[in-house]
Write a protein that binds this DNA or RNA. Sequence first.
DNA 1: CCTGAAAAATTATTCGC
DNA 2: GCGAATAATTTTTCAGG
Lengths: 157, 157
Amino acid sequence: MKPKPRLFAAPDLDALDDSIVRELSRDARLSMTELARRVGLSKTPVLARVRRLEEAGLITGYHATLSWPKLGLGCVTFVQVRLTDTREKALRAFNAAVSAVPEVEECHMIASGFDYLLKVRTRDVASYREVMGEKLSELPHVASTSSFVALEVVKDG
Amino acid sequence: MKPKPRLFAAPDLDALDDSIVRELSRDARLSMTELARRVGLSKTPVLARVRRLEEAGLITGYHATLSWPKLGLGCVTFVQVRLTDTREKALRAFNAAVSAVPEVEECHMIASGFDYLLKVRTRDVASYREVMGEKLSELPHVASTSSFVALEVVKDG
DNA sequence: CCTGAAAAATTATTCGC
DNA sequence: GCGAATAATTTTTCAGG
């Protein structure tokens, strides 16, 4: 018999936890009753497992997914940011400040060529220009930015 | 009196729809009862509005958010991809093929310098190397790729 | 650690207004 | 869009393997 392939690589998750996470990942509004049916367990252990997964921080939340274009936020821009100072204290200041900018959907520290890569979501390019000028370039220790506007979002979140 | 600021820019959403979307975006598991209480409406219109938002495709789904590091998928890599052919047919082939790669979390077509920017999630760098060699570089019309591994995920999804 | 059923609490849904 | 009543589900608990 072929062992069922796990989606996730965490060692302390058994196949049932894996199924639970996968199901809730696909549909966060499942009731415990329906979830139990899908993973082939009764409700009692399923509820206990979900609680455990939540408390262990493996499941961090449940969120509605939105159509950004239809909500009027269809413009995605990637920004390479270079800092003037990359010592720990400066990085921390930048991290905190950039996290507080709502238009910044993602921020990743990158190894080479530039220091950070940001993903920014705005209404349109004009709106991005504003965010860049008024918010991004004002972030602490920013030396320079390079922006790349997405022509088409092929796959997202 | 100050008009309440809207989060979203879509013209056909009133302030109540805006609140509903925002609440469900924060907690997808809210019951209609609790949601109604929060937006200050009774259940009947709230349910009708949620259905409308779902059917109009503004709300596309409800998903559990996961701690990728704790699930053993803590490695984020951005990949710039350049194609050998950027005619419509080639773009379409690439779009379809890249969308089917599960490790590719995002894919954006970019205006200049390179053609696509991919966000790839893997267990670790070794695992990314495999994905790159076996999947990404085999995608249709790929001329070259440049990979940037994230040292730290400051803000995500 | 899981099952299954019973009890209690919420919820969705449908009315008339 | 409201608020109450109904009907359906769900959460939660508990005895038992």
